[in-house]
Write a protein that binds this DNA or RNA. Structure first.
Lengths: 74, 74
DNA sequence: TTGTAGACTAACGTCGACA
DNA sequence: CTGTCGACGTTAGTCTACA
């Protein structure tokens, strides 16, 4: 499993745990909804700042997201 | 302090702790040396995969790097 | 509500060179 | 050994639109 795929799955899981739509997550993270979709599908990878934006919108620390990615990918 | 600046400082600190040159880090992470320099100076931000590559070259987990960035930036 | 497409701008990352 | 420059190809991220 690729890192981008793992990241997408982690974000999707965390988003659904919080009962957020992609649209709401996009709004709260100041990102485009279509891009959130591409991320969750593992078709794009984020930059550092994007990771921090998404983490903030999910009310989780960026390192927790990355840790989850490591566990899913490793 | 910006996130990119914090990332650069963290990488530089970890690199020096391991007594590596930018050139060695670049080689081990399969990145260009000039780009490592730009990262450490906070003039560029990495993508997710680049973070993982650098972490591997530093023999540290990506989430540990991000955690250090959070602490330096927060 | 989500996936995807196309067109677009800005930025990543490479490479060679020089102080 | 490191910072920076310019040129370059690739990709992040936006926006509109449609199934």
């Amino acid at each position: 499993m690729g890192i981008e795929d793992a990241f997408g799955q982690v974000v999707r899981r965390m988003r659904k745990e919080r009962h957020l739509s992609q649209e709401t997550l996009a709004f709260n993270s100041h990102l485009d909804r279509s891009f959130i979709s591409l991320l969750e599908c593992g078709r794009k990878q984020p930059t550092l700042i994007t990771i921090f934006q998404i983490a903030r919108a999910l009310n989780v620390s960026p390192s927790e997201i990355i840790k989850a990615v490591e566990e899913l990918e490793g």
